[in-house]
Design a protein around this nucleic acid. Structure first.
Lengths: 103, 103
DNA sequence: GCTATAACTTACCAAAAGGTAACATACGTA
DNA sequence: TACGTATGTTACCTTTTGGTAAGTTATAGC
């Protein structure tokens, strides 16, 4: 049963309602990852889209970026507390896909 | 904790990973609605996008369409069982937005 | 026979998203 | 001094998305 109809869902969708954002966030649930590793975990994403997506997530405070001043470059991304608060939703979306695919 | 890494989430996102689909589905949680009523409940959606979105949801078996042979036309949409299985996720997304907005 | 109605559909155009490939960086190593 | 490395950025182009406005339908009521 729906709780109200003014619909904060609209707000949520403006933050994470794209094809790639939930996928990127999902793969960070287990902890921080190097940029290249994270990108490889998202099948089909181009380099450009990956950068663009992670920049927006960073801007919105859902992931944080840690730069190691080494050569060649090393960058790690991880969920912020705000990003991590999406954990249950991300897992539910994943589980739903798994169940639905069976049918 | 994530359950696996092959990621059925990708499958889920291909079904409902757009700006409008979750919003349309959400407003059908309480039961069937006439086309025009449903459309008015989704703020900012154009007629064209509404039609296109609902057609895809119908094609994917998430909503069903009932036509009443009257003039002027009357059409009602409602969630299928498959669509209704997204209820918890849709509510979670809405609730998350409500909580997040406070901060 | 003209009009209002709800639910579309279509044509046209503008805006945004997205792919590919080249370039940038800076240091250690061959 | 040229190369490899990881992490980007940028330019160019194509594809997709999206908005607006006009057209379509069938009948009841004026």
């Amino acid at each position: 049963m729906k709780k109200n109809s003014s619909c904060p869902l609209h707000y949520t969708m403006n933050l994470i309602g794209t094809k790639w954002k939930p996928l990127v966030l999902f793969h960070l649930l287990d902890g921080s990852l190097r940029s290249g590793v994270l990108q490889k975990k998202v099948p089909g994403i181009s380099n450009k889209m990956f950068t663009q997506t992670i920049r927006e997530l960073e801007k919105d405070g859902l992931v944080s970026r840690k730069i190691f001043p080494v050569v060649p470059p090393k960058v790690e991304y991880k969920l912020t507390d705000r990003g991590n608060s999406l954990e249950n939703i991300l897992i539910s979306l994943d589980t739903w896909g798994l169940e639905d695919y069976k049918n």
